[in-house]
Design a protein around this nucleic acid. Structure first.
Lengths: 218, 218
DNA sequence: GCTTCTACTGTGACTTTGTCACACAGCAAC
DNA sequence: GTTGCTGTGTGACAAAGTCACAGTAGAAGC
């Protein structure tokens, strides 16, 4: 699969622009857990996900965290190149959730492309609007939804991504995704277990009643 | 003041683009309290604020609200034209906080401009990145800051905007800005009063000790 | 001036979520 | 078996949200 397969606007780009992308994109393979970007000064370039899974998160001063969105195959990560998007003034961290293969498009190359092509600029806009939408969705969840519902929804989502009912995940990691405290997750999982929705073992959560979980998540 | 004064990229636009903007922009004057946009289907067009003050907010199913950002003179509101930005999938409400004068740029006109001009597209991008940054800032506040600090910061900000220490605002409105409940604001203001930071009267909050408020807000 | 009405404010009781401190338990390495 | 580390469990308490009212300032009308 060449890089052309990852750009839906490929056909609307000029021959020279395509060439530039093809020759400048670097391949990179990273193991699970790699921090790909942290804070604004760090400006590796645009990341195109070929395989694997990436999460974007924010950190508090005390080290608490919350996942703001996740990226999968074919997704493009703009914020690893936040320095070229004037107007961005916040720090996101980008972390590989699984072993991943990426293309890295150098910042100066992408800068050149958006400056010279309305198509590329508008596509960038569209990508940013998508991320913005995900953050707004999260804001609504955080503001108006109870934690038990958010937890149930997270477990179902995780199960969907993994394609399995037995999730290998610790309470701590769940808490870091949801932006809450580990003890709270422990207590709430305990409750879900008492209701027969999950079975808990060290480092594992098994979904035993999807229907009930879906009903809880709404 | 012509519309040219509100576009920092005016000099980089073509003669025909400028002409198009000048002839198609509509003037609109709205009183305080006007709902300029609500939800995604509603697509009035791009708003350019000539004078006054606008706030963007989101609503929960039960009618609770939180201000996500505010717009002042010279700011541009993209989300009143969210239909032209493919990728946006959330509902924002736009409300005039004060009597305001606006220019409305029809959606089809702006659509044409971003499609044909990389400069306009990139500027749009920059505006979106700014709003994105404001929402990320809010997310950090909501997630990691205590309400007493957020309240103190809000009162100081409000005082800065109004250029006065006596704020004509109800507890309810403050709660709607911060995304919390009125009773919580009442209790917290009561506490601030007991500490001598504010004086409360019906429909009014007077800031009596800025230093202490600033220290609280950090 | 006096009443009436409404929007605003105050408060207690209770739930949910977050914080802190520490005990304990599973599992792998030695 | 002992040791050590990483997870998990729990109680007590604090912060914030919810619910159900009661009180009350101030404008509007008489």
């Amino acid at each position: 699969m060449g890089i052309s397969d990852y750009f839906p606007i490929w056909s609307k780009m000029s021959r020279s622009q395509r060439k530039l992308l093809e020759t400048s994109a670097l391949e990179r393979t990273v193991p699970k857990g790699t921090i790909l970007h942290s804070g604004s000064p760090d400006c590796v370039g645009l990341l195109v996900i070929r395989s694997g899974q990436i999460r974007a998160l924010i950190l508090s001063d005390e080290g608490k965290e919350i996942t703001i969105y996740r990226l999968f195959e074919r997704d493009i990560c703009l914020f690893s190149a936040s320095c070229i998007m004037s107007g961005i003034q916040f720090d996101v961290n980008i972390e590989a959730e699984k072993d991943s293969q990426l293309w890295v498009i150098p910042t100066d190359v992408y800068r050149y492309l958006i400056d010279t092509s309305a198509v590329v600029a508008n596509n960038t806009n569209k990508i940013m609007a998508s991320r913005f939408s995900e953050v707004m969705w999260l804001m609504e969840q955080v503001m108006w939804k109870r934690l038990d519902k958010r937890l149930a929804a997270f477990l179902l989502e995780e199960s969907r991504i993994e394609g399995a009912d037995d999730l290998k995940i610790t309470h701590e990691r769940i808490a870091n995704h949801l932006g809450t405290a580990r003890e709270v997750v422990t207590r709430m999982l305990k409750y879900l277990q008492s209701e027969g929705m999950v079975t808990l073992t060290r480092g594992r959560v098994d979904l035993t009643d999807r229907r009930k979980l879906e009903a809880l998540a709404e």
